[in-house]
Nucleic acid binder design. Sequence first.
DNA 1: AAAATATTTTAGGAAAGCCTAAAAATAGCA
DNA 2: TGCTATTTTTAGGCTTTCCTAAAATATTTT
Lengths: 218, 218
Amino acid sequence: MLTHSEENYLKAIFHLSLETDEDISTNAIALKINSQPSSVTEMLKKMSDKSMISYQKYKGVSLTEVGQKTALKIVRKHRLWEVFLFDKLNFSWDEVHEIAEQLEHIHSDKLTQELDRFLDYPQHDPHGDPIPNRAGFIQYSEKILLATLQVGETARFVGVKDSSAVFLQYLDKRNIALGDLLTISFIEAFDQSMHVLINDSNHILSKQTINNIYVLKV
Amino acid sequence: MLTHSEENYLKAIFHLSLETDEDISTNAIALKINSQPSSVTEMLKKMSDKSMISYQKYKGVSLTEVGQKTALKIVRKHRLWEVFLFDKLNFSWDEVHEIAEQLEHIHSDKLTQELDRFLDYPQHDPHGDPIPNRAGFIQYSEKILLATLQVGETARFVGVKDSSAVFLQYLDKRNIALGDLLTISFIEAFDQSMHVLINDSNHILSKQTINNIYVLKV
DNA sequence: AAAATATTTTAGGAAAGCCTAAAAATAGCA
DNA sequence: TGCTATTTTTAGGCTTTCCTAAAATATTTT
Ligand SMILES: [Mn+2]
Ligand SMILES: [Mn+2]
Ligand SMILES: [Mn+2]
Ligand SMILES: [Mn+2]
């Protein structure tokens, strides 16, 4: 059984591995989990001993098969709890993450399974991220950044890249929600801001915003 | 914010305090949480510094007002989660405690409140124990031990004293459930075993059993 | 009331998980 | 290739929570 801390390391390495094919560096992990590189080195040794990661001094780490499976279990729990909080307990999508960070560490296979059933086997969490199934299989979609669309194109809002509370609240304030249809009416050459038609109203979205919104072309 | 461990001490002292009016001894706590008296002494000092308990060397401890309030919050969470697992996730009453022991440490007032609402403000957990309300008020009932009844009396099964999995499973096996009506038909003088009519079938319940079942006379 | 017994505390130590500062290794560049 | 800057590891320390063994205190028995 892994400790709370070990699980957080595993999850950090998992998420960092999604961004690159290279091994994950000590510094990158330290940055991610808000700790010091020396603390990370220490933990990496322990997790290597437990065969959760492949680690060679100075060469970075990658998840082993077991580590990958374990990380997926934690991500699954995290996202299922987010769905529970959002769907059943009236939490908003900017509030769920913090509590899911705690709930993801509850150990009970039956609990995870029953929660999944109770929520009717959801495919995505409230931020549009895919939920691994019981076997650890995760269905990634072909989502692209809104910033890559051309004038005239229409697409569906299916996810956010960085789901910080402040960004999610910004979207809420503008009544932009997951599932909405977006049509690009104009792109400002000067600052790349995008004029977008959403729910019959026009929005001007900044470069930062459109680089943080995932869509699926329709 | 209290640690996981401090919360467990608080809960132990709370439960021990229900059994007696005296101060709680170091040994009793050690026994309850399965640790050593020396470990307990150490923690009691820390919790006294945090004003959660009143502690005088060699004299035992009691909860302060703040400690009592905090303990009740944890008990509230524990029992609400038990209801959730039992009512919504198909857990049996002998399985819920173990997982609630983990869930009770999740910190979020909103979560507790919304869970309470979602479960429709339950008054009792799956073992018949009362759930403190948001303000920490707990409604104790006049329940008595089945062992105290006389031949001919009828009462409703409303709780168990020791809710160990093995005892709860024993009741399940005999189709004896919370809410059932029990009528005493005979008491064996030799071993105090009780002949009880439950759901139209006759059961012979041992001394240990009838001293572990709470009822309300009807 | 003294002796024996039981309870509680103190002393000293271990493991986990974090830190800072210094040393070692690696990578980038002239 | 050799020097410099960056990254990573090691060394040493701190806190939390647990432990065992010994000392101190309280309780019970004679
Ligand atoms: Mn999240
Ligand atoms: Mn999410
Ligand atoms: Mn319980
Ligand atoms: Mn209970």
